[in-house]
Nucleic acid binder design. Structure first.
Lengths: 166, 166
DNA sequence: TAAAAGTTTCAAAAAATATTGAAAATAATA
DNA sequence: TATTATTTTCAATATTTTTTGAAACTTTTA
């Protein structure tokens, strides 16, 4: 397969995955492009490569920088801004996990903690409380697992643990 | 807090979380409702509780059954179908994880395996191949971790491992 | 087997989300 | 400081996704 075709397939597939996980397709495609490009790219490079508008690139780059997985680079003698992706793949995954936890998981945990304080007078209310409790435990566990596993990947102990639970 | 209010808050929050993770809000709300309701519900019960149309309920129940987390129940002497959710919270999480892996993660892994076969003549192509490789490893690890951790939750060994990596 | 009860399907409408493009803002140079 | 290059913003538009509702279909009962 030629490089250009492989790149295209990768970027499309990354965009499709993102869409299914509630992330803007363009944001993921810009990220994919930066990931597989050794040097930093300008807004115009990205516009051209992905055939999207300047405004779209600008907004999505900002969001990627908010996530902490894309950085602005200054090239001496150049007026334009250049952008590059987090180079360390594991670190990148960690940041994505942390961000999604902070924005989406944590708020739900707050609601769960709240609603389980329902007056447990009826049996129906007891059942409700129980289910919410179970869910809270499960989500907390998943949240912690993601955080810890990603933060420790590369670490020998985690590697062994993962090998064992595999 | 009164039960009705707590239920409403829970259902809304579950729907919002789902939306952010690329799952239809109504599907998640129906699921939430069934999860916290001790007895099975009819299509009309659901329509009333969530204020949505019959067609919407029908389609989303089908999808929930495809995911294996909602079941049809027959009540003797009753003509209507009744529906209830998987009772075991951990089993439910396992099924969701398996389904998302099958539908979304596995196809991406297939693409990654494919595109990394790019002709590695240029340095750019080598860089591309390397990045795709790293990503493949990472996604495979995450996929296996989710699968194994959920399949083993409740099991004493996993509990200890999770406590350690915490 | 005809009528009634219940369910599914899907084209059309509504709602939510993403994208554009041009004006405004900002930054760099002469 | 005026001019030019670059970036950001956001109302308008386009696209995608979800929801409705009524007709078609299926199942049950009389």
């Amino acid at each position: 397969m030629r490089l250009e075709e492989a790149k295209k397939r990768f970027i499309d597939s990354w965009g499709a995955l993102a869409t299914q996980w509630g992330i803007n397709k363009t944001m993921a495609q810009i990220h994919a492009l930066l990931m597989i490009t050794p040097e930093a790219l300008s807004v115009e490079d990205i516009m051209e490569e992905l055939h999207i508008s300047r405004g779209n690139v600008s907004m999505n780059l900002r969001e990627l920088m908010n996530w902490g997985i894309v950085f602005k680079e200054f090239k001496s003698g150049e007026r334009k801004d250049y952008f590059s992706s987090e180079r360390d793949t594991v670190e990148m995954a960690r940041k994505i996990a942390i961000e999604r936890s902070r924005r989406e998981i944590k708020p739900v945990l707050r609601v769960l903690g709240d609603v389980k304080k329902v007056d447990e007078s009826s049996n129906e209310a007891k059942f409700f409380s129980e289910k919410v409790d179970e869910l809270e435990d499960l989500i907390e566990m998943a949240d912690q697992t993601i955080e810890k596993v990603t933060s420790m990947s590369g670490n020998w102990f985690t590697k062994i643990v993962l090998k064992i639970i595999k």
